[in-house]
Design a protein around this nucleic acid. Structure first.
Lengths: 334, 334
DNA sequence: GCCGGTCGTCGAAGCGCTTCGACACTCTCA
DNA sequence: TGAGAGTGTCGAAGCGCTTCGACGACCGGC
């Protein structure tokens, strides 16, 4: 039965020490003799003591909570977002922090509110747009923050992401190595480009640069996410480019449809058309055939974002930009 | 520029009143003259005051934060979970509460921790299993909580969910009305049944009961989520049941594969096989053809869960069980 | 044998807020 | 006209914790 709440002074009394001693045992900010430490720790478990979060936050000016700002916008692939989110939560816990979930309905007001009320110590923003309304606010707030993704003007901000430019290029390179000469990129839904979401654009730029470098013919198209639209896009693409033999797909939601469309159009993968995806590993593995892919290292990005945030909280200096190198896993689709 | 933090006593000084008066203006717990209220409110905006969350929590024993416990387990359809989560956040904000995100890695320890440290006032648990490890803990903790979903032993707990039993039955009823006599249910992946997740089982029971009631022939199968597995399942199903003309699909992730498989097996929807899905509206609408479906009212469930939690926090009594009636939307697949 | 330096511990002062009791006032209504 | 009942406001006492300065006790070096 959950007894009424146990306070630090009860622990102190039980262990026969001062309140401050208990506090120092817990924080390790002053040296405590092994013997005293033992007694305090024993009392803590005996009484089932848990520090009160509010009191701690008030006294220490640290809430040990970070905000995760997750817009949940149209066109975003939710499972990927959730992997980031989940990674952030797990990583935060390793630093003894919890995660407050902020969605977009409140707009920037939510960010302002949690920062001003000291509810959180720092912010992690996901799904950053090139021209993101939250960015000017961040500059104004001076609250430690890390962006997952890059805005157009990242100067002075801390950003982390997969190096999508390199990822796009890596896919092209792989297809070039395999001898393909005419290839296409199927990207995000056009709404995502219109919004100027960075990762979509950067992949396309990487794709185009590598196509030029390798002297290939290449075309980049947005790609919607219903089967019928995908089917049409693929059909038209094959019609317009009879020589096309390689496909880069950067759209988790559409990747299954693309394969289904190829199947229906009687193109064998990889025999007639080779496919490289940029997507999480499990999506690539579960496709048929399993796809050669550049994985989106959601766990790593989330972990890195938290590490950066913690560094900033501790006053350590951090790099403005952290780009994780793309890693290509070859499977049966190329 | 974010000035250093403004406190209530500065507001009080600025408005020429006592600190407690400012507090009462904010909380409305005592009557304040219109004139004083105005002056205080003006000072608050003039100084840009935001109450400190920690101090408030300490003094009032209320953090104005609720925990959302989101296991993120295998086999769960993430986009649906996120719609619940998003609805919970939005609803919580309407009650001036924030949401702390708890995932499963910590197991029950996380729940215990946030409750004991008074980090949160209440808990909302998602994706509840029939035999859920978190349930005994809830009984022990005496922290206000609401479950989204039903455990095997819900006595004394507050649960809210779509009435999946009725939903399964409703789909059968609809197919019966359309004259189908032999039908099948394609449900969640078998791992979900094995785990004893309530909603999957309850849908099947509703399906089976209604099949019996209407004197139909019906079979219920689990359904995995890769195209190849779905294809096999559908193919075998049609082989084993040549007279089968109606399908109920309760698996968002597989629904697209089921349609693709039918297409590949040369069965026209709804001409040869009618399909009813239990899934969110947008999934049903984006399928081709658009699916007749019982929608999963994620927003409504989330909202209801928060309402119940707030009622409990205010000491109002709430019903143990809240079942939302299923609503069937007829589209082109039946 | 005395001095300066750790080391380990304590007490007390807040952190910024809510809330309780008290205290003027101003209205009633007998 | 005065007792009683509101109103509107104030001051002060915490809420449970961290942190700062202080202070013995003990150490080695001269």
């Amino acid at each position: 039965m959950s007894r009424r709440t146990v306070t630090i002074s009860e622990v102190a009394k039980h262990a026969g020490v001062a309140v401050s001693t208990v506090s120092y045992v817990l924080s390790g900010k002053r040296t405590i003799s092994a013997d005293t430490r033992r007694r305090v720790l024993d009392s803590i478990t005996a009484l089932g003591y848990h520090p009160n979060a509010g009191a701690r936050a008030l006294a220490s000016k640290r809430s040990n909570v970070i905000a995760l700002v997750l817009p949940l916008r149209a066109g975003m692939h939710v499972p990927v977002l959730m992997r980031f989110a989940s990674a952030v939560v797990t990583a935060a816990r390793r630093f003894d922090h919890d995660v407050l979930l902020l969605t977009a309905d409140e707009g920037t007001a939510g960010i302002r509110r949690v920062a001003a009320s000291a509810l959180v110590d720092a912010l992690v923003l996901m799904d950053v747009e090139l021209d993101d309304r939250r960015v000017p606010l961040l500059r104004e707030l001076a609250e430690p923050s890390v962006l997952i993704g890059f805005p157009a003007e990242p100067a002075g901000l801390t950003c982390v992401d997969l190096d999508f430019h390199a990822a796009g290029a890596r896919c092209v390179e792989h297809l070039a190595e395999r001898g393909h000469e005419e290839i296409a990129l199927l990207g995000a839904p056009s709404v995502v480009y219109d919004r100027g979401t960075g990762f979509a654009t950067r992949t396309r730029e990487g794709f185009e640069a590598a196509v030029a470098d390798h002297g290939l013919k290449g075309v980049a198209l947005p790609c919607e996410e219903t089967f019928d639209e995908v089917y049409e896009t693929v059909r038209d693409l094959l019609l317009d480019h009879p020589g096309l033999s390689g496909l880069v797909v950067h759209n988790e939601a559409a990747v299954g449809h693309v394969l289904a469309a190829l199947r229906q159009l009687d193109r064998r993968v990889p025999h007639d058309v080779a496919v490289v995806a940029i997507c999480p590993d499990d999506v690539a593995e579960r496709a048929s055939p399993p796809l050669t892919s550049v994985l989106i290292p959601a766990e790593e990005v989330g972990r890195e974002a938290v590490r950066l945030v913690m560094d900033k909280l501790e006053g350590r200096s951090v790099p403005d930009s952290t780009l994780l190198a793309p890693l290509l896993a070859v499977r049966s689709s190329t």
